[in-house]
Every structure is written in C-alpha cells, then in structure tokens.
Nucleic acid binder design. Sequence first.
DNA 1: ACATAATATGAACTATAATTCATATAGTTT
DNA 2: AAACTATATGAATTATAGTTCATATTATGT
Lengths: 102, 102
Amino acid sequence: MSRIIIDNPHKLFFETLGNRTRWNIIHLLLGKSHRATDIAVRLGCEQSLVSHHLKRLEACGFVRVNTNGTERIYSLNTETIRPLSKLVDKHVTKFCKELCKS
Amino acid sequence: MSRIIIDNPHKLFFETLGNRTRWNIIHLLLGKSHRATDIAVRLGCEQSLVSHHLKRLEACGFVRVNTNGTERIYSLNTETIRPLSKLVDKHVTKFCKELCKS
DNA sequence: ACATAATATGAACTATAATTCATATAGTTT
DNA sequence: AAACTATATGAATTATAGTTCATATTATGT
C-alpha cells in the first residue's frame, strides 16, 4: 500500500470521521469485530464501498485488521474512538442540546 | 436563523471540523478572538466565505460571537476544541506517526 | 433620512468526495 | 491447477460540499 503523507492530520482525521457510512461502520464495530463482508451485509451496502471505507479508516488508524484465510476481520481502535465519541457527546449536551433530536 | 435538527451529531461535527478553511479559522481563533473581516484578511480569503464558515462553526457550538456595533467578534469554544485537538495529537503519535510529516 | 462600514445571504458555479460497476488479486479447497 | 470465496482496486459516475459573486441586511455616524 502506498504511503500517505499528510500535512494536516486534524483535517484528514475529522474528514474521515465526518462521513455517515464510515461512522456507521465505526458504530457497528463498537459492538464487536466483523468481517468486511458482514459489515457490508449489516449496513446493506456494497462490498466494494465498505472496502474503500475500511481502507481509509485503517489508514487513519481508526480500525485494525486481522487476516484469517481469505477473511479479513476488522476491529475498532477503541482507545481513540471511545474518548473521541465521549467528547462529542459532552459537547452536544453542554453547548448544543437544542440542535439535536431528543 | 432557522433551527437545525440533526440525527447524527458525530457526523455533523466531524464533518464541520474536517475542512481546511474551517480548521484554519479555528487555528487562528486559538490565538485570540477576531472580527469576521479580520479573519478573512488574515487567511486571505473572501469575506463571504468566512461568513459562511463562521455560521456553521457557530451552529455547531465551536465558536461564539459577540456583537459590538456592526462588528461581530468571534471567539473559540476552547473547552471543546482544545481537548479534541489534544486527542487527535495523541492518536497521531500513538497510532500513525508514520503517516505524517515530521 | 442618507451614507457608510461590517457582515450575512442565496443562487450559480466549481471542486471534491462518495458510490457503483466491472474486474483483479489472493488465499482455500478439491 | 481449476474452481471458489473473500476482499481489493481503479475508473466512471453521481452526489455533496466549497467557493464566488452580486446583493441584502443591520447598526452607526452625519
């Protein structure tokens, strides 16, 4: 895989997280690890689409992959995602409750 | 201003942060508060563009505004942005040092 | 009330990212 | 090695977001 060089990690990482499909994948992986195909089935979207997104999530260090035969099992980097998610929740309750559906 | 109702705060917020211009604004405001026009001048971009972005940043609760005559002075919600930024820095050093320019 | 300064707004345009589709690759099983 | 399963890849298309431009608004000073 070609090496990615980035000048602004914040921009890249937040952009990566700011996508509905990718966030759906993250949300699914919060429960437990999944095979690529299972993610696609669960989310009801194309295998290739999930593959593209997983690649990016992996490149950003948000998910990790374990190979088992032809299968690739993706797991979440909870060490980053959980506190990140908590921070957002906290922000919402504190600063913009009124923006969100309750 | 019309009320915004959102179903997925994570998506909206990260998307908002995942934009170079908006991040430039945030970075500038990390130093000190600025008038809208000054931000535009400093970043070398259009007044209207900055206005659009500030609106969104404000809607997300990332910046606040204080009115002084016709001027509007924007300040950063450091309570959210600082820990968020730190989390990303930590993530980078721990999980993807090799992705970034040193 | 008029002129001015600062900022906001919305529509048109442009750039970028997301998705699909067809196909390639890489392990596995027989 | 041929057939199969799981996943990856890249180009083409489609959708979405960013930017610009012209104009509107809002407060202030004369």
